[in-house]
């Protein structure tokens, strides 16, 4: 029992019940509430409508409103599960959950496969990898000759595309990441293990002490 009179749950559009979200993810109820504090801050940075649009997402990621960015767009699309052009709170928590250290490796592998399957064809195709490589080079202001890019692609497909059909299917991807575990590093955010300490202000703002976790 908490010390305060319960005032009921926050009524915010798209604010799914933290208890339900906690039951579906590796987060505790308190952590879901902490994520809501973060979500509120991101979702009100440009338009205060309680939803994260692409501009707000990019702003949160890069601290500036960069131009179109292939990777940020792709991550946004994977967070925007319902394809509404905005990320609601439930989408946000469930997508971040994939990056939780305690989430099974298979979920991370699935997410990374979708991330790189730019055209959602069920395969990671050579031209998609080339497109991402070129985007990375532009982003990091690195220059590589086209033949060097083709060499990198050749080597990658030699290792990953076991059946030599010019595209990487899901089972080839599974085997490839097992052999190259460093590729999954981006799929884990150690931060997420203890999220409530990341948001000291949250302790004063939330109703968490009233909720059984």
């Amino acid at each position: 029992m908490g010390c305060f009179q319960s005032t009921g749950r926050r009524q915010v559009p798209g604010h799914e019940d933290p208890i339900v979200l906690a039951s579906q993810t590796a987060f505790t109820v308190s952590e879901v509430e902490a994520l809501f504090e973060l979500y509120k801050s991101i979702s009100s940075s440009v338009i205060d409508d309680g939803l994260i649009n692409k501009e707000e997402f990019q702003l949160a990621l890069f601290k500036n409103r960069k131009k179109e960015n292939l990777f940020a767009n792709r991550i946004f699309d994977l967070f925007d599960v319902k394809r509404k052009g905005v990320i609601d709170f439930g989408d946000f928590v469930r997508a971040l959950n994939v990056f939780h250290p305690n989430v099974p490796q298979e979920d991370k592998i699935d997410f990374s496969f979708k991330l790189y399957d730019l055209d959602n064809t069920g395969y990671i195709e050579r031209q998609e990898v080339k497109q991402m490589l070129i985007a990375l080079l532009c982003e990091s202001e690195m220059k590589l000759a086209d033949e060097t890019i083709e060499m990198i692609l050749d080597k990658t497909f030699l290792d990953a595309d076991v059946d030599k059909d010019g595209k990487i299917d899901k089972s080839e991807w599974d085997n490839f990441v097992v052999k190259n575990p460093s590729l999954l590093k981006i799929m884990t955010l150690p931060y997420l293990r203890d999220i409530t300490t990341t948001f000291p202000s949250f302790v004063f703002n939330s109703e968490v002490d009233e909720i059984a976790t």
Partner: peptide, 25 residues
């Protein structure tokens, strides 16, 4: 050196994948 790396190792270095930035609001 980039040539000795596979494409995905390079791609995964994109700062866009650094979702920790989301937590620095």
């Amino acid at each position: 050196r980039p040539v000795s790396m596979n494409a995905f190792e390079l791609i995964s270095r994109s700062p866009s994948f650094n979702l920790e930035n989301l937590f620095e609001q």
